[in-house]
Amino acid sequence: MAIPIVLEIVFPPSWGVIAASVFTLISSAILGVLEAKGTHLKYSKFFNASSSISPKVPSRVGMLFFYTPPFLVGVASFWHFPNGDLRFLLLKSAITIHFFKRIFEVNFIHKFSGEMALDTMITVLVGYLFLSSSLVYTQILNQGLPEPSIDLKCCGVVLFLVGICGNFYHHYLLSKLRTKGGKDYKIPKGGLFELVICPHYLFEIVGFMGISLISQTLFSFSATLGCAVYLGCRSYVTRRWYISKFDDFPKEVKALIPFVF
């Protein structure tokens, strides 16, 4: 029953696309499980710089390093593949806007006080490059093929815009919690922080779901599911961390999904 429905909303995948989709989903799920078990990517509040033997770089430099190349992939896709249908144009635009927003936040919104491990920076860079390049490539493969019988790209544009705006707004709220150079953490307030501790992750997932509906490929849906699994695990760990650090943390505030999880 599920397979015919899937075939109505995705382009027929090649074996290479199926393999890339399975790899992306499994690798993201493994990272999520490791997060839940205490093995974290070495950055942000979960990274103890003194415990890592890997060389360290300032967090701002690291984030610029792994956001800029996938942004350039999006920009280059307009130049290398100027032709294509509306779906391809929307996908290229979404990828470019997504990573441009991240670069903008690193430069003008986020406040940094720590470092990240060099091996983490390289791992994340490779992951984002693979993601952006694969999204573009799988869409190229579909040029000229019959469209899925259920067209979801307009819904995808709406979800993408909701996701990127919601994510930006809650990153802005987070940035207001800390003075420049400060290293202290506070319980976030405002927006959906009153209901979940990681609304920025929730909107990140919504944004990626928008990209999936724009693209309508097996790979894009697999990448979004993998993103949801990883961020779900990371939000669970984040909530647990806040509970351990703040005695007054409101227990009714969930991790990712209001009133549910």
Rank of each mutant, 00 (worst) to 15 (best):
L192P: 01
L177S: 02
F208A: 00
E204G: 13
E194Y: 09
C165F: 15
F160M: 09
V229E: 02
I211F: 11
I187D: 01
C165K: 13
G166Q: 03
Y172Q: 14
L231Q: 14
F160C: 04
L159Q: 10
F203V: 09
G181P: 12
L159N: 05
I205A: 03
L192M: 12
C227N: 13
K189D: 10
S220N: 07
G207S: 13
R178A: 02
L174G: 04
F160N: 01
C227M: 15
I211L: 11
L161Y: 08
R178E: 10
N167E: 15
K186S: 11
G232E: 08
V229G: 00
G226P: 08
G190P: 11
G207H: 01
H200R: 06
V206S: 05
K176P: 03
G182F: 11
F219S: 08
D184T: 14
C227G: 12
L174P: 06
P188E: 03
C165E: 09
L161D: 03
Y185S: 11
I187K: 09
Q216D: 05
S222Y: 03
C198A: 15
I197A: 00
L174Q: 13
L231W: 09
D184F: 12
I187F: 03
D184Y: 13
D184H: 13
Q216A: 05
L159H: 02
S175T: 09
V229K: 05
C227W: 05
S175H: 09
G191F: 05
V162G: 01
H171A: 07
M209H: 01
S222G: 12
T217L: 08
S175C: 03
G207E: 12
E204R: 02
K176F: 04
F160W: 08
R178K: 13
G210H: 00
F193P: 00
P188H: 00
G190F: 11
G207F: 01
F193D: 02
G207Y: 07
L195S: 14
I205T: 12
G190D: 11
F168C: 07
K180E: 15
F193E: 04
A228I: 05
K186H: 14
G166F: 10
L195C: 13
I164K: 07
G210W: 10
G191W: 07
G163I: 11
F168W: 15
I197T: 08
I187H: 00
S215W: 00
L159E: 06
L195P: 03
D184W: 04
Q216N: 07
G226H: 02
D184P: 06
V206Y: 06
L202A: 12
T224C: 15
L173K: 09
L161C: 11
H170Q: 07
A223G: 02
L231P: 04
G226R: 06
L195E: 15
F203K: 04
F193Y: 13
V229D: 04
I214Y: 00
I211C: 13
S215D: 01
Y230K: 12
P188L: 08
K189Y: 09
S212V: 04
Y201K: 01
N167V: 09
F160D: 06
V158N: 07
K183V: 09
G207D: 05
F219K: 03
H200F: 10
V157M: 05
V162P: 02
C227H: 10
G163F: 09
V229Y: 12
T179S: 15
D184L: 15
K176R: 15
Y230S: 14
G232C: 06
N167Q: 15
